[in-house]
């Protein structure tokens, strides 16, 4: 199953105003992997994502999606393979009703009407949003908008999902539902985010980007244990991996970092 891979080789991109956004990024993501792309604001995440759906073409280096390298001729193929979730769902839901929006992609693929109908129903069911089908997108809550945006992508039946800040603007319950939904997918997933707790739940591997370069590309837990790396790339360990603010006040100020064990963190502890 080599056709769900994403490989970026020595990618460079400089914007027209001279801002060097990406300066030599390389990585290879295999079929079924769930990978987080993290980094400070302006690190080059968005520019990188824009290459993965062919909105930008590499100025130097190559982007390979599935079996083919990204090029103008293969754009339709690439866009069918890669489903892209935008940061602001309002940008993504542009049709008058949710149903029209979910059907937009399949109709553009030229599918027969009854198959479009099947795909729309299946996609809405998959995310649990059948009841929203006839609503106009501007009447939905942020959480509902995000869910529907995911349905619009699923109806295209992509093999690779690329997501930009999927949890931004969601309340905690909506965020939790989103994480559960994303965890149930078997696609190759690439998630660019500042929400490192979400990374901990969803991604086994993390790529840290800093000033247009790959700073680290390792298993997620290893990266979050590397305090020095996190500090240098303007990040912070997920809150769950930081010590409990109430307990630390009672404990002696200096704890041996080697004694730190992930297992005790998961265990419920009481403050009574």
């Amino acid at each position: 199953m080599s056709h769900h891979i994403v490989a970026v080789q020595d990618l460079h991109y400089t914007y027209a105003d001279g801002t060097p956004a990406v300066q030599g990024i390389s990585f290879r993501i295999e079929h079924g992997e769930s990978v987080a792309i993290v980094g400070a604001n302006g690190a080059g995440k968005s520019t990188l994502l824009r290459h993965l759906n062919g909105y930008l073409t590499p100025q130097h280096g190559t982007v390979q999606i599935g079996d083919f390298a990204l090029s103008k001729e293969l754009l339709p193929q690439v866009r069918r393979t890669v489903g892209m979730l935008f940061q602001d769902p309002d940008d993504q839901l542009f049709m008058p009703t949710v149903r029209d929006d979910v059907a937009f992609g399949p109709l553009n693929l030229g599918l027969p009407p009854d198959e479009v109908e099947d795909r729309v129903t299946a996609a809405l069911q998959r995310v649990g949003a059948e009841h929203l089908a006839d609503r106009p997108p501007y009447r939905l809550s942020s959480g509902e908008k995000r869910t529907v945006a995911i349905a619009t992508i699923l109806s295209m039946q992509p093999q690779i999902l690329v997501m930009d800040e999927p949890s931004s603007g969601l309340d905690p319950a909506a965020r939790r539902r989103l994480i559960e939904l994303l965890a149930s997918f078997h696609h190759t997933r690439i998630i660019a985010t500042h929400d490192l707790d979400l990374v901990l739940d969803l991604c086994t591997r993390t790529i840290v980007i800093h000033q247009g370069k790959v700073m680290a590309d390792r298993p997620t837990l290893e990266i979050f244990d590397d305090a020095d790396l996190l500090r240098r790339s303007h990040l912070e360990a997920p809150l769950r991996l930081q010590s409990c603010p109430i307990c630390t006040k009672r404990l002696p100020p200096h704890r041996d970092p080697e004694a730190h064990h992930h297992d005790d963190l998961v265990e419920p502890h009481s403050h009574a």
């Binding site: 824009r50 909105y55 866009r79 892209m84 935008f86 309002d90 993504q92 937009f104 992609g105």
Partner: peptide, 22 residues
């Protein structure tokens, strides 16, 4: 800016100048 992002979202889903509605 938003228009550009919407255009990108439309391209991502195979927009070719025609809006089809079922």
């Amino acid at each position: 800016d938003r228009a550009q992002r919407i255009h990108m979202a439309m391209l991502c889903r195979g927009f070719d100048g025609e809006v089809r509605m079922s």
